[in-house]
Deep mutational scan, measured.
Amino acid sequence: SPPKPKTIVLPPNWKTARDPEGKIYYYHVITRQTQWDPPTWESPGDDAS
């Protein structure tokens, strides 16, 4: 059997959903933003550039 996916701790107000093909995506319940990649926690002042 395939390994279980890691449990991802989502930031507040993010949910997972499935598209009609069964792929998992993520959406923000307030902004209605959707994305394929797991959302990352906002870390103020932490600039990755």
Rank of each mutant, 00 (worst) to 15 (best):
S1R: 08
S1Q: 02
S1C: 12
P2H: 15
P2K: 10
P2I: 15
P2R: 09
P3E: 15
P3M: 15
P3R: 15
K4H: 07
K4M: 11
K4I: 09
K4W: 01
K4E: 00
K4N: 09
P5W: 02
K6I: 11
K6V: 13
K6N: 12
K6T: 09
K6Y: 07
T7Q: 12
T7K: 15
T7E: 11
I8D: 08
I8P: 06
L10W: 01
L10M: 06
P11Q: 08
P11G: 07
P11H: 05
P11C: 02
P12D: 12
P12G: 05
P12I: 04
P12H: 03
N13A: 03
N13I: 03
W14E: 01
W14Q: 01
W14V: 01
W14G: 01
W14D: 02
W14I: 01
T16N: 02
T16D: 04
T16I: 09
T16Y: 08
A17E: 06
A17W: 01
A17I: 08
A17Q: 01
A17P: 02
A17D: 10
R18D: 01
R18K: 10
R18V: 07
D19T: 14
D19H: 12
P20C: 05
P20Y: 05
P20R: 12
E21W: 05
E21A: 09
E21C: 09
E21P: 00
E21Y: 03
G22C: 01
G22V: 01
G22A: 01
G22Y: 01
K23P: 00
K23V: 06
K23N: 03
K23W: 01
K23G: 07
K23I: 04
K23L: 04
K23E: 04
K23T: 09
K23Q: 06
I24W: 09
Y25D: 04
Y25V: 05
Y25L: 05
Y26F: 06
Y26K: 02
Y26A: 01
Y26H: 02
Y26C: 01
Y27C: 03
H28A: 00
H28L: 00
H28C: 01
H28N: 12
H28K: 00
H28W: 00
V29T: 14
V29E: 14
V29P: 06
I30S: 05
I30M: 08
I30P: 10
I30C: 04
I30W: 04
T31R: 04
T31E: 02
T31P: 01
T31I: 00
T31W: 00
R32N: 12
Q33F: 00
Q33R: 06
Q33T: 09
T34H: 11
T34Y: 03
T34G: 05
T34F: 11
T34R: 14
T34K: 03
T34L: 05
T34S: 05
Q35H: 10
Q35N: 01
Q35T: 11
W36H: 15
W36P: 14
W36R: 14
W36F: 15
D37W: 07
D37K: 11
D37A: 11
D37P: 04
P38N: 02
P38Q: 07
P39R: 00
P39D: 01
P39Q: 02
P39V: 00
P39Y: 02
P39G: 00
P39K: 00
T40Q: 15
T40Y: 09
T40S: 13
T40H: 14
T40P: 12
T40E: 14
W41F: 15
W41D: 13
W41V: 13
E42T: 05
E42I: 07
S43I: 10
S43G: 09
P44S: 08
P44Q: 10
G45Y: 13
G45K: 12
G45I: 14
D46I: 08
D46L: 11
D46T: 06
D47Y: 11
D47T: 11
D47Q: 15
D47G: 12
A48R: 14
A48W: 10
A48P: 13
A48I: 13
A48E: 13
S49L: 08
S49G: 07
S49M: 09
S49Y: 08
S49N: 02
S49P: 13
S49A: 04
